[in-house]
Protein backbone atom coordinates (compact mmCIF):
# COMPACT_ATOMS: atom_id res chain seq x y z
CA UNK A 1 0.00 0.00 0.00
CA UNK A 2 1.24 3.46 -0.74
CA UNK A 3 1.35 5.63 2.29
CA UNK A 4 0.60 9.28 2.01
CA UNK A 5 4.05 10.75 2.10
CA UNK A 6 5.13 12.68 5.12
CA UNK A 7 8.64 13.98 5.49
CA UNK A 8 9.04 13.38 9.19
CA UNK A 9 9.49 9.95 10.66
CA UNK A 10 6.55 8.47 12.53
CA UNK A 11 6.58 9.93 16.00
CA UNK A 12 5.08 7.36 18.34
CA UNK A 13 1.73 8.45 19.71
CA UNK A 14 2.92 7.95 23.27
CA UNK A 15 5.66 10.52 22.87
CA UNK A 16 3.41 13.17 21.40
CA UNK A 17 0.75 12.55 23.99
CA UNK A 18 3.18 12.81 26.87
CA UNK A 19 4.23 16.24 25.74
CA UNK A 20 0.65 17.46 25.97
CA UNK A 21 0.26 15.85 29.38
CA UNK A 22 3.46 17.46 30.62
CA UNK A 23 2.18 20.89 29.71
CA UNK A 24 -1.10 20.30 31.52
CA UNK A 25 0.68 18.98 34.61
CA UNK A 26 2.97 22.02 34.57
CA UNK A 27 0.00 24.37 34.35
CA UNK A 28 -1.86 22.61 37.15
CA UNK A 29 1.24 22.61 39.40
CA UNK A 30 1.78 26.28 38.72
CA UNK A 31 -1.81 27.09 39.62
CA UNK A 32 -1.50 24.93 42.73
CA UNK A 33 1.60 26.82 43.82
CA UNK A 34 -0.15 30.13 43.22
CA UNK A 35 -3.05 28.97 45.36
CA UNK A 36 -0.84 27.84 48.22
CA UNK A 37 1.10 31.11 48.04
CA UNK A 38 -2.05 33.22 48.05
CA UNK A 39 -3.55 31.27 50.93
CA UNK A 40 -0.38 31.65 52.97
CA UNK A 41 -0.21 35.35 52.15
CA UNK A 42 -3.82 36.02 53.07
CA UNK A 43 -3.57 34.06 56.31
CA UNK A 44 -0.39 35.72 57.49
CA UNK A 45 -0.51 39.25 56.11
CA UNK A 46 -3.46 41.55 56.61
CA UNK A 47 -3.44 44.80 58.50
CA UNK A 48 -0.24 43.53 60.04
CA UNK A 49 1.96 40.55 59.24
CA UNK A 50 2.26 37.50 61.45
CA UNK A 51 5.26 35.22 61.35
CA UNK A 52 4.40 31.91 59.60
CA UNK A 53 5.09 29.99 62.79
CA UNK A 54 2.35 31.89 64.63
CA UNK A 55 -0.10 31.28 61.81
CA UNK A 56 0.60 27.55 61.93
CA UNK A 57 0.22 27.28 65.68
CA UNK A 58 -3.00 29.24 65.48
CA UNK A 59 -4.34 26.97 62.75
CA UNK A 60 -3.50 23.83 64.72
CA UNK A 61 -5.52 25.20 67.60
CA UNK A 62 -2.69 25.96 69.98
CA UNK A 63 -2.76 29.30 71.75
CA UNK A 64 -0.71 31.74 69.74
CA UNK A 65 -1.21 34.79 71.85
CA UNK A 66 -3.86 36.77 69.98
CA UNK A 67 -3.05 35.34 66.57
CA UNK A 68 -5.79 32.79 67.18
CA UNK A 69 -8.64 35.27 66.70
CA UNK A 70 -7.17 37.03 63.69
CA UNK A 71 -6.21 33.84 61.87
CA UNK A 72 -9.03 31.46 62.75
CA UNK A 73 -11.98 33.80 63.06
CA UNK A 74 -11.19 36.55 60.60
CA UNK A 75 -8.83 35.31 57.93
CA UNK A 76 -9.46 31.57 57.68
CA UNK A 77 -13.20 31.75 56.87
CA UNK A 78 -12.49 34.44 54.34
CA UNK A 79 -9.75 32.39 52.68
CA UNK A 80 -11.86 29.24 52.61
CA UNK A 81 -14.83 31.12 51.23
CA UNK A 82 -12.69 32.70 48.49
CA UNK A 83 -11.20 29.32 47.67
CA UNK A 84 -14.43 27.34 47.34
CA UNK A 85 -16.37 30.11 45.68
CA UNK A 86 -13.56 30.60 43.18
CA UNK A 87 -13.45 26.88 42.46
CA UNK A 88 -17.21 26.78 41.94
CA UNK A 89 -17.30 29.76 39.61
CA UNK A 90 -14.26 28.57 37.65
CA UNK A 91 -15.63 25.05 37.19
CA UNK A 92 -19.18 26.12 36.43
CA UNK A 93 -18.10 28.82 34.03
CA UNK A 94 -15.71 26.64 32.07
CA UNK A 95 -18.27 23.84 31.91
CA UNK A 96 -20.74 26.16 30.19
CA UNK A 97 -18.11 27.61 27.88
CA UNK A 98 -16.91 24.19 26.81
CA UNK A 99 -20.39 22.75 26.42
CA UNK A 100 -21.66 25.66 24.35
CA UNK A 101 -18.34 26.05 22.51
CA UNK A 102 -18.32 29.74 23.21
CA UNK A 103 -16.31 31.74 25.74
CA UNK A 104 -19.11 34.30 25.96
CA UNK A 105 -21.57 31.65 27.10
CA UNK A 106 -20.46 31.73 30.71
CA UNK A 107 -23.13 31.74 33.43
CA UNK A 108 -22.34 35.29 34.56
CA UNK A 109 -22.92 36.65 31.07
CA UNK A 110 -25.99 34.69 30.07
CA UNK A 111 -27.85 35.48 33.26
CA UNK A 112 -27.54 32.34 35.36
CA UNK A 113 -25.52 34.06 38.10
CA UNK A 114 -27.85 37.04 37.96
CA UNK A 115 -30.83 34.73 38.32
CA UNK A 116 -29.31 32.88 41.25
CA UNK A 117 -28.36 36.19 42.84
CA UNK A 118 -31.79 37.75 42.42
CA UNK A 119 -33.42 34.60 43.79
CA UNK A 120 -31.09 34.57 46.78
CA UNK A 121 -31.90 38.20 47.58
CA UNK A 122 -35.60 37.48 47.13
CA UNK A 123 -35.32 34.50 49.47
CA UNK A 124 -33.57 36.56 52.13
CA UNK A 125 -35.47 39.84 51.90
CA UNK A 126 -38.97 38.73 51.05
CA UNK A 127 -39.15 35.15 52.27
CA UNK A 128 -36.83 35.67 55.25
CA UNK A 129 -35.02 32.40 54.57
CA UNK A 130 -31.50 31.51 55.68
CA UNK A 131 -28.66 29.12 54.90
CA UNK A 132 -29.48 26.04 52.82
CA UNK A 133 -32.95 27.25 51.92
CA UNK A 134 -31.44 30.32 50.23
CA UNK A 135 -29.07 28.12 48.24
CA UNK A 136 -31.90 25.83 47.22
CA UNK A 137 -33.93 28.76 45.93
CA UNK A 138 -30.86 30.05 44.08
CA UNK A 139 -30.25 26.67 42.41
CA UNK A 140 -33.88 26.41 41.44
CA UNK A 141 -33.79 29.89 39.94
CA UNK A 142 -30.53 29.15 38.13
CA UNK A 143 -32.02 26.03 36.53
CA UNK A 144 -35.16 27.96 35.69
CA UNK A 145 -33.16 30.71 33.99
CA UNK A 146 -31.09 28.14 32.09
CA UNK A 147 -34.28 26.51 30.82
CA UNK A 148 -35.76 29.88 29.96
CA UNK A 149 -32.71 31.01 27.99
CA UNK A 150 -32.45 27.66 26.22
CA UNK A 151 -36.11 27.97 25.30
CA UNK A 152 -36.02 31.60 24.21
CA UNK A 153 -33.04 31.01 21.96
CA UNK A 154 -34.27 27.53 20.99
CA UNK A 155 -30.63 26.61 21.38
CA UNK A 156 -30.08 23.03 20.41
CA UNK A 157 -26.44 22.24 20.64
CA UNK A 158 -23.95 25.00 20.03
CA UNK A 159 -24.70 28.46 21.23
CA UNK A 160 -25.06 31.07 18.59
CA UNK A 161 -25.11 34.79 19.07
CA UNK A 162 -28.80 34.41 19.82
CA UNK A 163 -28.33 32.57 23.09
CA UNK A 164 -25.75 35.10 24.24
CA UNK A 165 -27.94 38.08 23.39
CA UNK A 166 -31.02 36.59 25.01
CA UNK A 167 -28.88 35.79 28.04
CA UNK A 168 -27.49 39.31 28.29
CA UNK A 169 -31.03 40.71 28.15
CA UNK A 170 -32.30 38.33 30.81
CA UNK A 171 -29.23 39.11 32.90
CA UNK A 172 -29.89 42.85 32.79
CA UNK A 173 -33.50 42.31 33.78
CA UNK A 174 -32.54 40.14 36.74
CA UNK A 175 -29.93 42.63 37.91
CA UNK A 176 -32.56 45.31 38.08
CA UNK A 177 -34.76 42.93 40.07
CA UNK A 178 -31.89 42.55 42.54
CA UNK A 179 -31.44 46.33 42.77
CA UNK A 180 -35.13 46.81 43.35
CA UNK A 181 -35.22 44.21 46.11
CA UNK A 182 -32.20 45.82 47.75
CA UNK A 183 -33.87 49.24 47.72
CA UNK A 184 -36.72 47.64 49.55
CA UNK A 185 -34.49 46.27 52.27
CA UNK A 186 -33.50 49.30 54.31
CA UNK A 187 -32.16 47.15 57.11
CA UNK A 188 -29.20 46.30 54.98
CA UNK A 189 -26.10 48.37 54.87
CA UNK A 190 -24.19 49.27 51.78
CA UNK A 191 -21.62 46.50 52.19
CA UNK A 192 -24.29 43.84 52.22
CA UNK A 193 -25.94 45.35 49.17
CA UNK A 194 -22.60 45.39 47.36
CA UNK A 195 -22.28 41.67 48.01
CA UNK A 196 -25.42 40.96 46.05
CA UNK A 197 -24.61 43.37 43.27
CA UNK A 198 -20.97 42.56 42.59
CA UNK A 199 -19.99 39.80 44.99
CA UNK A 200 -17.93 39.96 48.15
CA UNK A 201 -16.42 37.67 50.75
CA UNK A 202 -16.49 40.34 53.44
CA UNK A 203 -17.36 39.00 56.86
CA UNK A 204 -17.54 35.40 55.65
CA UNK A 205 -18.21 32.85 58.36
CA UNK A 206 -17.40 29.16 58.43
CA UNK A 207 -21.08 28.20 58.62
CA UNK A 208 -21.59 29.89 55.27
CA UNK A 209 -18.67 28.01 53.74
CA UNK A 210 -19.91 24.47 54.35
CA UNK A 211 -22.89 24.50 51.95
CA UNK A 212 -20.54 25.62 49.18
CA UNK A 213 -18.09 22.86 50.06
CA UNK A 214 -20.94 20.36 49.87
CA UNK A 215 -21.98 21.77 46.48
CA UNK A 216 -18.41 21.49 45.30
CA UNK A 217 -18.34 17.82 46.26
CA UNK A 218 -21.74 16.90 44.81
CA UNK A 219 -21.90 19.02 41.67
CA UNK A 220 -18.14 19.02 41.13
CA UNK A 221 -18.29 15.24 41.34
CA UNK A 222 -21.12 15.10 38.83
CA UNK A 223 -19.11 17.33 36.52
CA UNK A 224 -16.01 15.17 36.93
CA UNK A 225 -18.03 12.09 35.96
CA UNK A 226 -19.23 13.86 32.81
CA UNK A 227 -15.90 15.48 31.96
CA UNK A 228 -14.84 12.95 29.34
CA UNK A 229 -18.15 13.05 27.53
CA UNK A 230 -18.17 16.83 27.73
CA UNK A 231 -14.74 16.90 26.17
CA UNK A 232 -15.99 14.79 23.25
CA UNK A 233 -18.97 17.07 22.67
CA UNK A 234 -16.43 19.66 21.54
CA UNK A 235 -16.02 17.61 18.36
CA UNK A 236 -19.63 18.27 17.46
CA UNK A 237 -22.71 16.24 18.26
CA UNK A 238 -22.35 13.73 15.44
CA UNK A 239 -18.74 12.87 16.17
CA UNK A 240 -19.41 12.65 19.90
CA UNK A 241 -22.42 10.41 19.47
CA UNK A 242 -20.55 8.20 17.06
CA UNK A 243 -18.00 7.75 19.83
CA UNK A 244 -20.73 6.55 22.17
CA UNK A 245 -21.50 9.77 24.00
CA UNK A 246 -25.12 10.31 24.97
CA UNK A 247 -25.09 13.96 24.05
CA UNK A 248 -28.41 15.10 25.47
CA UNK A 249 -27.90 13.30 28.76
CA UNK A 250 -24.41 14.76 29.00
CA UNK A 251 -25.66 18.26 28.34
CA UNK A 252 -28.33 17.83 30.98
CA UNK A 253 -25.85 16.58 33.58
CA UNK A 254 -23.34 19.31 32.81
CA UNK A 255 -25.99 22.03 32.94
CA UNK A 256 -27.25 20.73 36.27
CA UNK A 257 -23.75 20.53 37.71
CA UNK A 258 -22.66 23.94 36.46
CA UNK A 259 -25.84 25.67 37.59
CA UNK A 260 -25.54 23.98 40.98
CA UNK A 261 -21.95 25.14 41.42
CA UNK A 262 -22.64 28.70 40.33
CA UNK A 263 -25.87 29.03 42.30
CA UNK A 264 -24.40 27.77 45.57
CA UNK A 265 -21.38 30.02 45.21
CA UNK A 266 -23.61 32.98 44.36
CA UNK A 267 -25.87 32.41 47.33
CA UNK A 268 -22.82 32.54 49.59
CA UNK A 269 -20.71 35.33 48.12
CA UNK A 270 -22.90 37.01 45.54
CA UNK A 271 -22.22 36.92 41.80
CA UNK A 272 -18.47 37.65 41.98
CA UNK A 273 -18.15 39.53 38.73
CA UNK A 274 -16.58 37.80 35.73
CA UNK A 275 -14.75 35.05 37.63
CA UNK A 276 -16.79 32.37 35.86
CA UNK A 277 -16.22 34.15 32.58
CA UNK A 278 -12.46 34.68 32.95
CA UNK A 279 -11.37 31.34 34.38
CA UNK A 280 -12.03 29.13 31.37
CA UNK A 281 -10.13 31.14 28.75
CA UNK A 282 -7.19 31.71 31.12
CA UNK A 283 -7.07 28.01 31.95
CA UNK A 284 -7.25 27.12 28.26
CA UNK A 285 -4.25 29.36 27.59
CA UNK A 286 -2.30 27.78 30.42
CA UNK A 287 -3.03 24.12 29.70
CA UNK A 288 -3.18 24.30 25.93
CA UNK A 289 -6.87 23.42 25.89
CA UNK A 290 -6.60 19.72 26.63
CA UNK A 291 -8.71 17.62 28.94
CA UNK A 292 -7.42 19.33 32.08
CA UNK A 293 -9.29 22.50 31.33
CA UNK A 294 -11.95 21.97 34.00
CA UNK A 295 -9.67 21.48 37.02
CA UNK A 296 -7.40 24.22 35.71
CA UNK A 297 -10.36 26.57 35.37
CA UNK A 298 -11.49 25.79 38.90
CA UNK A 299 -8.06 26.60 40.26
CA UNK A 300 -7.85 29.73 38.13
CA UNK A 301 -11.17 30.85 39.59
CA UNK A 302 -9.85 30.34 43.10
CA UNK A 303 -6.67 32.27 42.29
CA UNK A 304 -8.74 35.12 40.86
CA UNK A 305 -11.01 35.40 43.90
CA UNK A 306 -8.16 35.08 46.42
CA UNK A 307 -5.95 37.55 44.60
CA UNK A 308 -8.83 39.91 43.85
CA UNK A 309 -9.96 39.92 47.44
CA UNK A 310 -6.47 40.48 48.75
CA UNK A 311 -5.89 43.33 46.32
CA UNK A 312 -9.25 44.85 47.19
CA UNK A 313 -8.47 44.77 50.88
CA UNK A 314 -4.86 45.78 51.08
CA UNK A 315 -3.28 46.77 47.79
CA UNK A 316 -5.67 49.39 46.48
CA UNK A 317 -6.19 52.91 47.85
CA UNK A 318 -9.77 52.15 48.90
CA UNK A 319 -11.14 48.94 50.41
CA UNK A 320 -13.12 47.26 47.68
CA UNK A 321 -15.16 44.05 47.59
CA UNK A 322 -13.62 41.32 45.45
CA UNK A 323 -16.28 41.62 42.76
CA UNK A 324 -15.26 45.19 41.97
CA UNK A 325 -11.66 44.09 41.43
CA UNK A 326 -12.49 41.06 39.29
CA UNK A 327 -15.05 43.12 37.43
CA UNK A 328 -12.41 45.68 36.58
CA UNK A 329 -10.20 42.93 35.17
CA UNK A 330 -13.03 41.14 33.40
CA UNK A 331 -14.69 44.03 31.59
CA UNK A 332 -11.80 44.83 29.22
CA UNK A 333 -11.42 41.13 28.50
CA UNK A 334 -15.09 40.89 27.60
CA UNK A 335 -14.69 43.82 25.20
CA UNK A 336 -11.66 42.15 23.66
CA UNK A 337 -13.57 38.90 23.09
CA UNK A 338 -16.52 40.71 21.54
CA UNK A 339 -14.23 42.67 19.23
CA UNK A 340 -12.43 39.52 18.21
CA UNK A 341 -15.71 37.68 17.61
CA UNK A 342 -16.88 40.57 15.45
CA UNK A 343 -13.74 40.49 13.38
CA UNK A 344 -14.19 36.76 12.84
CA UNK A 345 -17.47 37.36 11.08
CA UNK A 346 -19.80 37.93 14.00
CA UNK A 347 -20.61 34.28 14.65
CA UNK A 348 -19.26 34.67 18.20
Amino acid sequence: MTLIIDTQAAAPAAHARNRGTRRAVMALSMLGLCLVGLIALTLSCGQGCLPPAHVLTALTGADAGGADFVVNDLRLPRVLMSLVVGLCFGLGGAAFQVMLRNPLASPDIIGISAGAGAAAVFAIVVLSLEGWAVSAVAVGAGLGIATLIWGLSSGRGAAGARLILVGIGVSAMLNSVTSYLLLDAPAWDRAEAMRWLTGSVNGAQLVQVWPVVAALVVFGGLLALSARDLDLLRLGDDAARALGVRSDATRFRVTLAAVGLVAFATSAAGPVAFVAFLSGPIAARLTGGGRCILPAAGMTGAVLVLAGDYAGQFLLPARLPVGVVTGAIGAPFLLLLILRANRNGGTL
Binding site: A13, A16, R17, D231, L235, D238, L243, G288, G289
Partner: peptide
Protein backbone atom coordinates in the same frame (compact mmCIF):
# COMPACT_ATOMS: atom_id res chain seq x y z
CA UNK B 1 -18.71 -1.92 16.49
CA UNK B 2 -19.35 1.03 14.22
CA UNK B 3 -17.40 4.21 13.60
CA UNK B 4 -18.62 7.31 11.81
CA UNK B 5 -16.81 10.17 10.17
CA UNK B 6 -19.40 12.98 10.06
CA UNK B 7 -19.63 15.32 7.09
CA UNK B 8 -18.62 18.38 9.09
CA UNK B 9 -17.06 17.60 12.43
CA UNK B 10 -15.92 20.50 14.60
CA UNK B 11 -12.24 21.03 15.33
CA UNK B 12 -11.96 22.33 18.89
CA UNK B 13 -9.48 25.10 19.49
CA UNK B 14 -6.01 24.15 20.61
CA UNK B 15 -6.32 20.39 20.16
CA UNK B 16 -3.34 18.51 18.72
CA UNK B 17 -3.59 15.80 16.09
CA UNK B 18 -2.59 13.06 18.50
CA UNK B 19 -5.18 14.31 20.99
CA UNK B 20 -7.86 14.18 18.36
CA UNK B 21 -6.94 10.72 17.16
CA UNK B 22 -6.79 9.56 20.78
CA UNK B 23 -10.43 10.61 21.20
CA UNK B 24 -11.27 7.71 18.93
CA UNK B 25 -10.37 5.36 21.77
CA UNK B 26 -13.23 6.61 23.93
CA UNK B 27 -15.63 3.72 23.35
Amino acid sequence: IMGLLPQSPIAPEGITVVDLVGRGRHP
